[in-house]
Write a protein that binds this DNA or RNA. Structure first.
Lengths: 217, 217
DNA sequence: CCCTTGCTGGAGTGAACGCTACAGGACATC
DNA sequence: GATGTCCTGTAGCGTTCACTCCAGCAAGGG
């Protein structure tokens, strides 16, 4: 490129800087975890000095918590059961319709994970850590996860209303946990692991499990 | 306690010290990840000076890799399909027998995880990290995981010999990934999450999936 | 035109980091 | 009891860490 990004920005721009810092942080923290995220690295990738980071955020703890907070909404949105066209409702048996909706939801989640894996990668690293003084980012991620769990419980209640509430909760725990595992498998295996295929298999497995649990009760 | 652990050990004892260092490291690294594991912390928990650590291990990288290496065997052992009493072989249909064996294997894995969670917790943290210079511990864990994956493929081949090889591989990936996820769910949720129950549900889900895949092909 | 506000730039703090150097104690072998 | 090996204990190396201080600059409002 001939035109260097002109000299320096011509006016102080806090909002833009804050965004750049958070972008840099989510990348680095998603690659190296909490301890591995150094202010110097973030500052270098954001193209801003350390003092700017400390102007926007109280300390490292708050910085990483802010990263989780920012992705909160987008992440939960992917966990919402999508509506279905009325034609399908009429054409299919309820059980078959539920399976189809579960598969759609699974595909939606898989795509969200492929799209921005940094958030969950960081979240899971934080969740696995057990240091004496818990980082606020970990607390925050666990809260997000709790809300996600409630959402899955709700989705199961909608797709399989005849399931006992405690059974639905167990199934939701299983569903969410397996999704985490599939994500990790894809992180490890790269493109050798077909995340969409695995999530589809997962949706089927859950539907099969509902059928089995239904018979059992 | 009146009797202080007497003064200091009376003879140099390398093997014992090495074990103490590795014990301390697996605990700390399992709690705080790679970067969070400082030599000073390990030295304090092992009750030995830093120089002893560096006498036994070349550097931090080798130390953490040694932790993974030591747990290698025990971990793979838990992933071995247990034999089954001949009486059961005769009494049950093949499909029902396969389900029972899968449940036994799942219970065995769940118990191994409850028994010593540090290894997998550390391994998963390492696996999620993506720093430019990969720690040898990560490479080593991925190798262990690869062997584990092969074992699951083999177990599926034994329990469901009619499944196409590629299908068996996909299923093995799914099985192992979900197991990781369930472990994490238990790490997060503590005793609110019944790991044995979830693994049993997983064994059923896999058996159901085999049935479905069998029909599909 | 000055003054406040919002943000950047650079220099630097003490503490913690991984790691090393080296003297010396405990034991085995002779 | 001398000698060599194994391991411990102390001190400290250079580097990086999170974080601070403060001068200075571009806008907006008076």
């Amino acid at each position: 490129m001939a035109s260097e990004r002109s000299a320096r920005q011509r006016r102080a721009n806090g909002e833009e800087s804050r965004r750049r810092i958070l972008d840099a942080t989510v990348e680095i923290a998603g690659e190296r975890g909490y301890e591995g995220t150094s202010i110097k690295l973030v500052s270098a990738r954001a193209g801003l000095p350390a003092s700017s980071i400390y102007w926007h955020f109280k300390d490292k703890d708050e910085l990483i918590a802010a990263v989780i907070e920012r992705s909160f909404g987008a992440w939960l949105e992917a966990m919402t059961l999508p509506e279905v066209e009325p034609a399908a409702v009429e054409a299919l048996e309820p059980v078959e319709l539920a399976r189809r909706r579960a598969r759609t939801l699974a595909a939606q989640m898989a795509k969200a994970l492929l799209d921005s894996p940094d958030f969950l990668r960081l979240g899971l690293m934080l969740a696995l850590e057990r240091r004496p003084e818990e980082p606020s980012a970990r607390t925050m991620f666990l809260q997000v996860r709790h809300v996600a769990h409630e959402r899955v419980v709700h989705a199961i209640g909608e797709l399989a209303p005849d399931l006992a509430p405690t059974t639905a909760r167990r199934l939701a725990t299983y569903a969410l946990a397996a999704a985490d595992g599939l994500f990790i498998a894809h992180e490890i295996g790269g493109d050798d692991v077909d995340l969409l295929d695995l999530f589809d298999m997962h949706a089927h497995a859950l539907s099969d499990t509902v059928a089995r649990l239904r018979e059992a009760q």
